[in-house]
Design a protein around this nucleic acid. Structure first.
Lengths: 348, 348
DNA sequence: ATGAAAGCGCTAACAG
DNA sequence: CTGTTAGCGCTTTCAT
């Protein structure tokens, strides 16, 4: 391992180009007050010496870190239930880099862990603003951040306060999916919901319910199951439905894994999908286009959400106006085979 | 949006507790030279005022950022070909947090993009050390980092130099998979390789070849295809094999998507898997345990690799000894149905 | 055992 | 138009 080199500083540039550090600073930041000749000269020296500003020094002085922190819940569970985390990350990264910001990633610390408490992340000045991945509905972390007056973009709905959010239209997506099933003649639609302490699950349940009610179909609690986003749970729900001889002609699941679990199990029981039972999932994971039949599902525009969220927080930090406090990004129903629509083109 | 609050500084603590800033610094860092009574008092005041050290100030002074940067290639392609990126991230994050470090994420800048050049990331003092996700074999970025003497852990094999690496045993994994196929009586084994400008692909091809040669089976280039990690490409390879009436009794694919594409297509042609053709993939993505038949594949210990890599770079930064320059993490053959092993227990 | 003072690299305020 | 000065918040000698 080579020893670390000392880096060229503003002072070095100043000494060599025969001006003061302050002038170098101005020159390199393109300030118009400095003579163009001086500026050119300074720039030349800086380039020759391969000068790169020490951002820590800059940060200390300007009280900005030019850094966004993406904070998400500290549960392995999380990565699993969010197969599109990488897409969100890509969207955020792209935007962050494009704006010459940095990105830090951190998990939400446990509330009572002194060492890793929120205050620390908040006040150590490492980041200027936060993008917060939603946790359970009861999560109080968000309150603490707001309390400190920190710029924050929350990636889900938040009641009252005018905190800036970017949300998926989970309600609308579920509504559209359910409507679609109804339009195909389905009347007894099972909903396998995710855990209801997540906003996303609540919204989808509401969308499902609204669609039913609008079509004068009875909302039947016996057809709704709250499960934990796993393949096995989709399986289990169908097994129980079969065991209890419950009649149903469609399943709308809170994610693709549960939908696929349900679909596989239906077929194992000799129930045809989509002829006997239509199935729709949520997420549009890779697998959705490879199952037999291919899975109709709700695409989650996570990359776009990432881009919007990053742009919003950056706008806030740059004191530019934020166009809208709340941005709702529409989802998209991807119609494949499992729902039984005759023809993709027409149904879209 | 509330206006930002001013934060409590060392000076504030000093003033209130009636000692000097220096003493506060020492007291809070638990230095033994300071009277225990003073220390207790200072700690109390700090706690009451909810003091959190400004890490930027500390950084500037101590010339450490206590931050690791994870850098990976700037290709959307990347996220797709590495379904286990999140696992790697989790492993890194866990270890980083456990050691009170921060994690920054950055994509590799384009070589000729001034604004985002490597030098900048390297010299701006934002991070003390780097974990570098491998790019193509020709990637010269790594040389630049080494040139600056920066602590670095590379997540793949690197020829000569004694740079610290954490590698998967891709050679060994491919060797084991191929051996396994041979032990099942397969003699004409197709290999669908990933792009050969990635080290991983080269290593797997070598492992495949070595296994064949050891068993005195001819290495037949006509059975090797270089493809781009996509489902469609697995499909395409099988279609071409069928069209050209090529005889084969097994397929070892460079990732699960291609393996599943191949498997689906075989079955479409009425070829039974595993009875007629055995199939093995790489990655062990979620889907692998849900296909029919379930897919035998090579598990990639990415979480572990992340943990080891993070621990190594942190050890280097703390000037603790690094146990080994090169760590090779074994992969694991996960035997399911698609290879045709009679009994999982026995074959393992 | 504690305090004073210096200084990390940078920029903002103020002089000239 | 340019230079001087003063600090951002912290740690670390060096005195006391």
């Amino acid at each position: 391992m080579k020893s670390k080199k000392e880096f060229v500083t503003l002072k070095d540039i100043a000494k060599i180009s025969g001006v003061s550090p302050a002038t170098v600073s101005l020159a390199l930041s393109g300030d118009k007050r400095v003579n163009i000749k001086t500026r050119k000269h300074v720039e030349e020296v800086a380039k020759k010496l391969n000068y790169v500003p020490n951002e820590i020094g800059r940060s200390l002085r300007s009280k900005k870190a030019d850094t966004i922190a993406l904070i998400f819940p500290d549960t392995t569970h999380n990565a699993f239930t969010h197969p599109y985390f990488v897409e969100l990350l890509e969207g955020i990264m792209d935007t962050v880099v494009k704006n010459d910001f940095h990105l830090m990633i951190s998990t939400t610390p446990k509330m009572n862990d002194e060492k890793a408490s929120y205050s620390k992340i908040l006040k150590n000045r490492r980041a200027d603003g936060f993008i917060l991945w939603p946790s359970t509905i009861e999560d109080k972390n968000i309150l603490e951040i707001i309390g400190y007056g920190f710029p924050l973009v929350y990636l889900s709905k938040w009641h009252n306060d005018n905190i800036v959010t970017v949300e998926r239209d989970d309600f609308g997506g579920a509504y559209e999916a359910t409507k679609h099933l109804i339009s195909l003649g389905r009347k007894k639609i099972v909903h396998i919901s995710g855990p209801l302490n997540y906003q996303v699950s609540v919204d989808r349940l509401e969308g499902y319910r609204k669609a039913l009610e609008e079509s004068r179909l009875l909302y039947n609690p016996a057809l709704v199951f709250e499960k934990d986003f796993l393949y096995e749970n989709g399986k289990e729900v169908v097994e129980n439905l079969q065991k209890n001889n419950v009649e149903f002609d469609a399943i709308f699941a809170g994610n693709d894994l549960m939908a696929i679990g349900a679909m596989d199990t239906l077929q194992k029981f000799g129930v045809n999908v989509p002829e006997d039972v239509s199935v729709i999932g949520c997420d549009d994971i890779d697998m959705a286009s490879m199952t037999i039949p291919t899975l109709t599902t709700i695409y989650q525009p996570m990359r776009k959400i990432g881009e919007i969220a990053a742009q919003k927080i950056i706008d806030i930090l740059k004191n530019e106006k934020v166009n809208e406090i709340t941005t709702v990004v529409p989802t998209e129903l991807v119609i494949r085979r499992s729902c039984g629509a005759k023809n993709n083109e027409i149904m879209l």
